[in-house]
């Protein structure tokens, strides 16, 4: 009985940490509207809100959505052109869900994608307990142009990697900032250093192909040193 309780409370702590990191991740992605007390939820409150009476976590409740703020929408809208006088912004509401299945096939991915698309979310983040099957991972690419679906393992979110002292600050550049950068240094896009889309920080920030991040490191000689990387 005591052992069962112990395992259960460990599970609760794990999920609480993943839950917090997921919120921090959304908050760090530009300017989604999230309340401060939602991000910094205490373990006790997490227990009282999301646990069943017997102490186990109710994963069905572990889901949330966030809307982008107006300034973020403005930033992510492509400039008007003749052919597209009323452009739609690239970003949109995000849906985050903790899924309780232990194994993931194409079926589960399709269900999730259907939910995202029917509810008009632009981005869906599924946080899973077990790994995806290879076919499921490949099928993610096929729905890419309808909605962006990102997958994280629970164990990847136990700590927030961007808070580690060896991880420098990554700042996503907006469209205008990117063009200004390329103009300032007279560069073509391809001449920038690159960062992979599967890079842990790139995944954390949800980078898309073609976006540029500014990486600010501390430097012994210069104080701060900024470099830029193009996501590929």
């Amino acid at each position: 009985m005591d052992e069962g309780n112990d395992a259960r409370s460990k599970e609760v702590v794990r999920l609480w940490r993943a839950w917090r990191t997921a919120h921090e991740m959304i908050a760090d992605r530009q300017e989604y509207e999230l309340a401060e007390d939602e991000i910094k939820i205490s373990l006790d409150r997490f227990r009282s809100d999301y646990c069943n009476p017997d102490g186990s976590v109710n994963r069905g409740k572990l889901q949330f959505s966030a809307r982008p703020s107006d300034s973020m929408l403005r930033k992510n809208t492509p400039p008007k052109t003749d052919s597209d006088p009323d452009p739609t912004p690239d970003c949109g509401p995000v849906w985050v869900e903790f899924l309780s299945d232990t194994s993931f096939g194409v079926g589960q991915i399709r269900n999730f994608a259907k939910y995202i698309i029917t509810n008009q979310y632009k981005t869906g983040i599924m946080i899973t307990h077990g790994a995806l099957s290879p076919a499921a991972r490949k099928s993610l690419a096929s729905v890419e142009n309808l909605a962006k679906i990102e997958c994280f393992l629970e164990e990847d979110l136990l700590v927030n990697i961007t808070h580690h002292e060896l991880v420098p600050r990554h700042v996503l550049l907006s469209r205008e900032e990117k063009t200004a950068l390329l103009k300032r240094y007279r560069l073509k896009e391809t001449q920038l250093p690159r960062i992979l889309q599967k890079d842990p920080v790139a995944r954390y920030l949800g980078l898309k192909r073609g976006q540029v991040v500014k990486i600010i490191r501390t430097s012994e000689t210069a104080g701060r040193y900024a470099s830029y990387r193009l996501c590929v």
Partner: peptide, 11 residues
């Protein structure tokens, strides 16, 4: 083929 086996197992 390995992917197929795994996918069937998931099902």
């Amino acid at each position: 083929y390995d992917d197929l086996i795994e996918e069937r197992n998931v099902n």
